[in-house]
Nucleic acid binder design. Sequence first.
DNA 1: CAAAACAGTTTATATTATAAACCAATTTAT
DNA 2: ATAAATTGGTTTATAATATAAACTGTTTTG
Lengths: 95, 95
Amino acid sequence: MFTPLDPLLHSELRLAIMSLLVSVDEADFVYLKEKTAATSGNLSVQIDKLSSAGYISVTKGYEGKRPHTTCRMTQQGRNALMAYVEALKSYLPKQ
Amino acid sequence: MFTPLDPLLHSELRLAIMSLLVSVDEADFVYLKEKTAATSGNLSVQIDKLSSAGYISVTKGYEGKRPHTTCRMTQQGRNALMAYVEALKSYLPKQ
DNA sequence: CAAAACAGTTTATATTATAAACCAATTTAT
DNA sequence: ATAAATTGGTTTATAATATAAACTGTTTTG
């Protein structure tokens, strides 16, 4: 009847992050923060969770002298997102 | 950019309950439990939350000698569900 | 009549999301 | 030059949430 929803993706902020990453090659912390309007702390935590799950890959380094974190979606993340969207459909009113 | 998701609806079980109720005039506790495969406790709690929010109306009584709980979606619930579905779209990959 | 089943409710627990507090470096202002 | 603010984050604390376990009262069934 209802397909279980991947709890990692069924989260407002993580879903927003994935939504941003799916259509872009890569995005940095500052960009994600701006687009999601999340606090740094929250964003940092959720990026870590997506990264630990293998849904995104994260590169931390320096841009000049400032720290710089870049995220990109992995193939696994892409698959998970597609599966999540499919699963969601089982909950949504048809048409 | 992203429309906030009503936290009351952004919950697997509550969304399933709403999904069942939207297409049916009314549904009882046993039916919802069977269709959602939730535990009684969880279902009871989530029904209460939806009811407190005014998203569903709940009638508790007796069917013969057995307790019998019936739920139906309110107009407010219907509106909230539609708004939630619209909001969700801002997070989902287009097309 | 004891045990299992029905239809739930209440309570406890474990997880989660989120923000607050913090850190290290760098600008900017005085 | 140095104090204050800003940048780009991380860590930790707290509040909220979801969920299951335990319980209640009635009613069948063995």
